[in-house]
Amino acid sequence: MQEALLTQTIYFEIGPLAFSQSLVTSLTLTILLVLLAASLTHHLLITPTKLQSMAEAIMGVIENAINEVLPQYSRQVLPFIATLWLFLLFANLVGLIPGLQSPTRDLSITAALAILVFFSVHWFGIRSQGLANYLRHYLKPNPLLLPFHLISEFTRTVALAIRLFGNMMSLEIAALLVLLVAGFLAPIPILMLHIIEALVQAYIFGMLALVYVAGSIQSQIISRKHSMTRA
């Protein structure tokens, strides 16, 4: 049981690359989501069909949520954040299907997503204001704070990965333990909690990524405004 709790079953290996269950699940999920998106956007109509208006409603909600945090740059960051949200939503919920595991209960998958967030924070920051301006914000308000800036960059990425992994893993362990103790029908409330938690964790991961990106873009805008008013 311990083995099943903390490690992943490996399906097959190609050279040094081991295809674990979580990797296969998330790859399949990615392909399915891409196919779904392609089929939904294939024939866009002025008077939408039911499916199209459903997809438009989902995108509208996501766009509104991004607009509230980052109004000027919402078009730029929308693809990344919306992809994170949709992928995490499905990845968290896949664990409810019998025989499948959430890919997000594997630390490798969440770490990969957190690394993506780490790089995209710098990418959006540099893209909005240029490299020199972006690097300068590490020296503000005082060059003494540079180590703290660097530590916070590192720890928040680790925290992002561990948070999602720990939440999903602990939920599955809780369901498993209740099943061992009580058996028939008793784990169903825990599974309902699983649905809520999957939604909340997907929301939080995407929202934190959005807030970090917004921080890297806006720190320079604010400091630029500040220097303009002073000049």
């Binding site: 509230e68 925290a159 561990i162 939440n167 602990s170 929301y203 939080i204 929202m207």
Partner: peptide
């Protein structure tokens, strides 16, 4: 929004312990 983000931050402490 800020409540959710703050709760996530606090919750992650409990998750570290776990």
């Amino acid at each position: 929004r800020s409540l959710f983000i703050g709760l996530a931050m606090i919750e992650s402490l409990a998750i570290y312990v776990l």
